[in-house]
Design a protein around this nucleic acid. Structure first.
Lengths: 342, 342
DNA sequence: CAGACAAATGGTAGCGCTACCATGACTGGC
DNA sequence: GCCAGTCATGGTAGCGCTACCATTTGTCTG
């Protein structure tokens, strides 16, 4: 039919092929696909028929080049395997599954430098929006976000100074609430056990410390932390360290639920009664917390909702109506369970 | 300087700006960036200086359009929160972090139709490679993979008929090995407990069944499954169901470790001695299996390595030297622990 | 020293799409 | 019935980059 398929390109149908087949101009095909309302119903039908017949799929690269805007959401998280971020990402995916937007995830490995590098890479694509975990960007990363030319949502935490928008909650309040709960339950020698100690963990620790100081019970020897990535087995080890330091320990607030589970298992192993001798509180409230024996008190966080909400805000901003509320605090909920019921 | 910044584009430096500043042709800049060996050292240095000074970052969309090939790895997994796939994805990310390739993850939600849709979307970008979980693509999805025009790696499982390449292991053998271990330990009324029951779970079940039939002990009432997504709490519930059906149950092979953990907790709650009254075997060997009390026997799978290996094979194929071994079986390892030590 | 050949560089012409700016056909008000 | 104001459609000119094909220079052969 055509006298010569162009040398490059895989011979896939282009918008020009569709236009020819439908007997319209290329630009009308483009419009029919992106702004159907601006094309008469007749032509729309013809074009759709041509699209179906040819199996035409628009080339997103050409689209991005021509419009100087890629239909991509850039998402930056510090870890892919940590269930917490996986849930946020799942929320983002589910919210975007019916939209034309693709998603590109970057793994910063909890490194500010890596975050900068990824922002550079992501920015070069002119993404439609950026969603980044945390509020502690390096100055250079912050500048990249400010100049990204697209909506930016910082997630997981709230803070006073958003680049653009924020969805999260106060980790400091979460830590304080968890610790106050232990205090109210009558525990006194309450330890803090934390792994990784990223900025959010630091703020949970700060909340713990505030509560303990208010009660006049803070003692630095009660705090056991490590920069090592969190795991259940690490929770067990850290708990043993903590007990070695302070044998009279009668409660622990754990950085997260993996650590808490490790503590519980070690209590079983050492025949320490939970909650009688040791009270345990976790953070995030993973599904297993309510099932364990005994079930474990934890601070429930709304991770999936953080993902869906951040997308909703970004989409609104893209559509031109930026939410008037730029900082959304989704809060948390203390789930009281057997591990602190004494 | 330039008489008029083009109306479109964000005013970011382009390859022409770099070329002008370095006093060379645009194409030479392009080469210096992509095939440094073909440009003299002098020019390379000049060009690098211009790139640094201008802060030039190539536009991946323009690059993809011009070269009919995007530097993107498309990755299709059925779930983002399931730790198993998260580990595979982490391996992929780590292997690709120093390469120019970006990664795009698609979440199929265990749906063949969704997989087809995503393959369509991914294919429209002309990705550099595709990595897909599983070997049970729909005929239409399989056709899309065959016509993708790029290396394809099917991961998680091995099978007889790869689209292109495969990295995984035999879930059937894994299930059989786990069950045989329980039999050797002296358990007789061994149940199978499974959630989600995707094709891989089905094959683990088939392995269980094969082992039980060989021993002359298979009984359909020993099998308890549900299509519901897996979780620790579900494991607990399914175990109660299984016990209600067969009160003399003395062992369980669990679909995965979440289920196994749920079973363990229910045993604690019901004061069933593990391993004396009930033997438990999990699948995947998550970190917590070795820490739990008692520790849980599990089939260790090499998820991270599946990710790294699949990338290595794809990169080799892109570089033009397709591995001669197109099917790589990474095997598994039975980790014997307290939960079956009677 | 002519001719052949490789290495280094550049010019031109798109890749497939959309922004921008016409154009023509209507509609409605006075 | 004329003019402004819509609406539907199309043409043209790029977006920023690279494939392809020169062109130039230097090096080697006989």
């Amino acid at each position: 039919m055509s006298k010569a398929r162009s040398r490059r390109g895989g011979g896939r149908p282009t918008i020009a092929d569709v236009a020819r087949k439908a007997g319209v101009g290329a630009i009308t095909v483009s419009r029919a696909l992106r702004e159907p309302g601006r094309v008469s119903e007749d032509l729309r039908r013809q074009i759709q028929a041509a699209v179906d017949e040819l199996g035409y799929v628009p080339d997103p690269n050409a689209r991005a080049l021509a419009s100087a805007r890629a239909e991509v959401f850039g998402v930056l998280v510090p870890s892919l395997t940590n269930n917490v971020f996986a849930e946020v990402v799942r929320g983002i995916y589910d919210s975007l599954s019916d939209s034309p937007f693709r998603i590109q995830i970057g793994n910063t490995h909890y490194s500010g430098l890596e975050e900068e590098r990824l922002l550079q890479v992501f920015g070069s694509q002119r993404p439609a929006a950026l969603i980044v975990a945390g509020i502690d960007q390096t100055p250079s990363a912050r500048r990249l976000l400010e100049n990204a030319g697209c909506p930016v949502v910082q997630v997981m935490e709230t803070g006073p100074d958003p680049v653009d928008m924020m969805v999260g909650f106060s980790h400091l309040d979460g830590g304080r609430t968890a610790t106050e709960h232990l205090l109210q339950a009558g525990y006194r020698k309450i330890g803090f056990i934390g792994a990784r100690m990223d900025p959010r963990s630091q703020r949970r620790l700060a909340g713990y410390r505030a509560a303990m100081e208010t009660a006049g019970l803070f003692d630095p020897r009660l705090v056991t932390t490590t920069p090592v990535p969190s795991s259940v087995s690490l929770g067990r080890e850290l708990f043993r360290d903590a007990l070695a330091k302070v044998p009279t320990l009668d409660g622990v607030f754990c950085n997260n639920d993996d650590i808490a589970l490790g503590v519980l298992f070690e209590c079983h192993r050492a025949s320490l009664d939970v909650p009688k001798q040791i009270g345990i509180v976790g953070f995030n409230d993973l599904d297993m917390m309510q099932v364990s024996f005994p079930s474990i008190t934890s601070v429930r966080t709304h991770r999936y909702e953080i993902g869906t909400r951040s997308v909703a805000m970004a989409l609104a901003a893209i559509a031109g109506n930026r939410p008037e509320q730029r900082i959304v605090d989704l809060g948390f909920e203390l789930m009281r369970r057997e591990s602190t019921a004494r």
